[in-house]
């Protein structure tokens, strides 16, 4: 029964993904993209297959970018989407003692 439920949910998610993929296909066929320079194209056409550890700082840079957007999101949420005053805020219950984590999303 549980397996059937999971399969139905997976089918629904796949259907939603297929719809979005269809929209992406339509968008991609309609939109005009800027022409990149030949040097950039040549570099992108022949990307290395192996990892380059020396590029680790680039990865850290993207972690910082991710944290930056999360920070912006936090500021926006506190300033605009949380009209309840701090004194009224109640902690989120995870319901961990009852056996199921009550996740927000």
């Amino acid at each position: 029964m549980n397996l059937v439920r999971v399969l139905v949910r997976l089918a629904l998610l796949s259907l939603a993904a297929a719809v979005f993929a269809g929209f992406t296909g339509i968008y991609g066929s309609l939109v005009r993209t800027p022409v990149s320079n030949p040097m950039g194209r040549a570099e992108r056409q022949h990307r290395r297959s192996e990892p380059e550890v020396t590029q680790f700082p680039e990865f850290i840079g993207y972690v910082f970018l991710f944290v930056f957007w999360a920070g912006i999101g936090r500021i926006a949420l506190r300033l605009r989407l949380s009209p309840v005053s701090r004194s009224e805020v109640e902690p989120i219950s995870l319901n961990l003692q009852r056996g199921r984590p009550g996740r927000v999303s």
């Binding site: 990307r47 297959s49 380059e52 993207y62």
Partner: peptide
């Protein structure tokens, strides 16, 4: 995000 770090594969 960083293809050069991970490599294409």
């Amino acid at each position: 995000q960083t293809v050069r770090f991970t490599g294409l594969v």
